[in-house]
Amino acid sequence: MTFDASTVEMIKTGIWETVYMTFLSSFLAYVIGLPLGVLLVVIDEDGIRPVPWLHKILGVVINLLRSVPFLILLFIVLPLSKLIIGTRIGSPAMIVPLTIAAAPYIARVVESSLREIDAGVIEAAKSMGASNWQIIWKVLLPECRPSLLVGAALAVTTILSYSAMAGFTGGGGLGAIAINNGYYRNEPFLMWVSVVLLVVLVQIIQEAGMRLSRLGDKRIR
């Protein structure tokens, strides 16, 4: 194979498509997953407003969604992409399945971060007359910010690896290049270039998340 201008152009486009698929669906998945994660903690038996039956139902639904393998979810959800985005192929169509797959995962990641909070701090806020909303906005989320950022790095890198499956549905991104050009057309070099770039992206996101978390953590002297 030749590493000509058009190949370079293709890889550039691939990087951009991977980045936008990952970040746009991460953002949308957080819009759904963050409140869900908060809700899971709040309505738990020992939460600030226990609603055990809802907690149970929510838990089952989240587990159900999480147990469907992404590749299968992708094909199930594509008709929905057609409905929402207007197409079932290409990178934009990937946003819908990625968001649906990532939201329950993010809900669990957020839940486990929020569980790290010291119950005594919540009790102190209650003793000052804080309402449940105030506890969520002024205690739970800000106090858990470092852990939420570590969780976000984890979530975004997972979504990035999911996005690599776009190649199967005619979507774009580095994963598609690795599968379509690298594997099906037997261009191993191109496949490795894509994989290395994916690795670099994961490293950057992970490192950025950890640094942000540490930088903002006031528990570190």
């Binding site: 806020a125 003793s127 007359g129 106090e143 528990r219």
Partner: peptide, 28 residues
């Protein structure tokens, strides 16, 4: 909740907000 504000409370483990500095804890 309103009545609780007339009763301050302190704890064995202090229960300060770790991500807020001292003055913001007192302002809380």
């Amino acid at each position: 909740r309103k009545t609780r504000r007339s009763m301050g409370m302190i704890f064995q483990q202090f229960n300060l907000l770790a991500q807020r500095n001292v003055i913001r804890n007192v302002c809380f």
